[in-house]
Computed example of a mutant assay.
Amino acid sequence: MLLDIMQVTEGGGFVIIQDSVDCCGRQLLKSFINAALKREEIIHVLGFEVCEDELRAGLDSRGIQRLYFHDGFTDPLGWTECPALTVHQFTPQEISARLGHSEQPKSVMLVIDSLSWILRHHPPAVVCQRLQELRRGGALKSILALLHSDMHQQGIVGSVCHLATVVISVSPGTGAKHAVAKTTRRTKSGRVTREEEYFTVSEDLTVTIEAQTIHSGKAQAEPEEFEADPAANLTFNLRLSEVEREAKEKLSLPFVFSQEKKSALLHHRPGAGRILYEPDANDDFDQEDPDDDLNV
């Protein structure tokens, strides 16, 4: 799955490479950039963690002219008079202005190296909102971001990863050269596919899949909320069969009168008996004192 995602990037895709101090994901990030250059895509990099020379090292020289590096590494906080890019300029308007000179906006990939720098200086809700605006703006084909998961709380990491169409979590493998990529991919229909693969990245940024783990390749839908059945494990049956339901519907309840029964009760019939009651002296009822006969 990792190679499929790297070779074919859908329009509107948002890929997050999630790493930690135990396993760096920048080489895999550069492999994605290299594959996009070979597809003749235009790439804009918001670089906050490494300089331009370090990022360009090893990339395909034939397509390197299509890579635009926006230097946020030299002065990320804007301490000088004319900073090239600061972390506070991470807004849809600013980024769209920087992408404005691209001849083919539909084939532009935005690379954020790294998203952790932005999350350290912006509230998570603001970052998520701006990422959504960038995806919906139509000026980008895809977004690729590097995220250091051990620098943030798990709730923040989960909120940002929830926006992504693909999340690749890298961790150390069994060997010194191997690493494990746990890939979660969400399609537009809501289907979720998860896979774990052992991979290596060579000096020319070529990714090689060594093997798949035992539990890889299983596709599943998003888990639905489980609701307990109150009628389960009872000693009696609360549900009706079809025959019992039909018999229940035909049954006339004692407090439900039919039209014929209502007519018989409301209309006087000849020869019907009547009850006549004549009160005596002991039945004298005083409206002012209804309890008079109790001798209280």
Rank of each mutant, 00 (worst) to 15 (best):
V166S: 15
V207Q: 15
I118L: 12
G190F: 08
T187S: 14
S107Q: 11
E197L: 03
L146V: 04
S149P: 01
T206S: 14
E203W: 05
R98F: 05
Q93F: 08
V166T: 15
K177L: 11
V192H: 05
V108N: 09
S159K: 13
V160E: 05
H148A: 09
E195D: 14
L131A: 00
A139S: 12
G138H: 11
K141I: 03
R135I: 09
R186F: 04
V207R: 15
G175T: 13
D113R: 03
D204C: 08
T200M: 12
L205P: 11
C128A: 10
R136N: 05
S142G: 08
L146T: 02
G100Y: 07
I156A: 02
T165E: 14
I156F: 00
P124M: 10
H162W: 09
S149A: 14
D204Y: 06
R191E: 15
S142P: 02
K141V: 01
V207H: 15
G175N: 09
V166E: 14
S189A: 14
V108T: 12
E195M: 02
R130T: 01
A125E: 11
K141D: 01
S142E: 09
I168E: 09
R191M: 12
P105H: 12
A176V: 10
H148M: 08
H122S: 07
R120S: 06
E103W: 08
A164P: 04
T206N: 14
I168S: 04
L146G: 04
G100P: 01
S114M: 09
S107N: 11
V157I: 15
V127P: 03
A181R: 03
E94T: 07
E94C: 06
A176I: 08
V108P: 00
V108M: 05
V170N: 01
H152S: 03
L131V: 00
R186L: 08
D150K: 04
E196L: 12
D204R: 11
K141Y: 00
V201C: 15
P172D: 04
L144D: 05
Q129Y: 00
R194L: 02
E195G: 06
E196V: 02
G173Y: 13
I112S: 00
K141Q: 10
S159L: 08
D113Y: 13
R191P: 01
S96A: 10
G100H: 12
V192I: 15
L115I: 04
